[in-house]
């Protein structure tokens, strides 16, 4: 699967309150509505700047803080195709796999806002089309790849009636 889009760049330690604020997420489970507020406290115009397929690119510890699964879901509903960061916080990492949002762990220092990227997930490489560079991607652990390939944890449970990593 190849993903293509342009970059929206953020710093280190983007927490899940920034991704979707508590003042919105307690009101509704309507993810289309929550998506309008994604990253609002860091960039009030973020939602309107996204072209479907774009990427969020950040430094280390992306998704730290609260366990809210509204965070990856609102990113999905904002038409972001993947989040790319140097490292991810643990709960967010699991939540992305469970909900089907692709995560790309790689060195993001050479990626700037507005760059056009193409990600080849099967080859494990990120092409920065704007800069003409290739960046290797850290592969997902086998268990997570299995859940992602099944279409998320709900689909995994529907298929097997429980956990099955054999």
């Amino acid at each position: 699967m190849n993903l293509q889009g342009k970059v929206h760049k953020f710093a280190n330690d983007v927490n899940t309150d920034y991704i979707i604020s508590g003042r919105h997420k307690f009101k509704t489970l309507d993810m289309k509505e929550l998506a309008r507020h994604v990253m609002e406290d860091l960039d009030p115009d973020f939602y309107s700047k996204v072209t479907p397929g774009d990427f969020i690119v950040a430094g280390s510890n992306f998704g730290c803080g609260s366990s809210r699964e509204q965070a990856p879901m609102a990113i999905i509903y904002a038409d972001i195709s993947a989040v790319i960061a140097k490292s991810f916080a643990r709960i967010f990492y699991r939540n992305c796999i469970n909900t089907g949002l692709p995560l790309i762990e790689c060195d993001t220092d050479g990626i700037d806002a507005g760059d056009k990227l193409e990600i080849d997930l099967s080859a494990g490489v990120l092409h920065n089309l704007s800069k003409g560079t290739d960046i290797p991607i850290t592969p997902l652990p086998a268990v997570m790849l299995k859940i992602l390939n099944d279409g998320g944890l709900v689909e995994h449970f529907k298929k097997y009636g429980g956990f099955n990593f054999d």
Partner: peptide
């Protein structure tokens, strides 16, 4: 440990969860 809602659902259904 903290988890998201889908892991929570898996725990409610099966009484189990996978851990690293």
């Amino acid at each position: 440990t903290g988890v998201g809602s889908t892991d929570m659902a898996a725990g409610m259904v099966s009484g189990k969860l996978w851990f690293k």
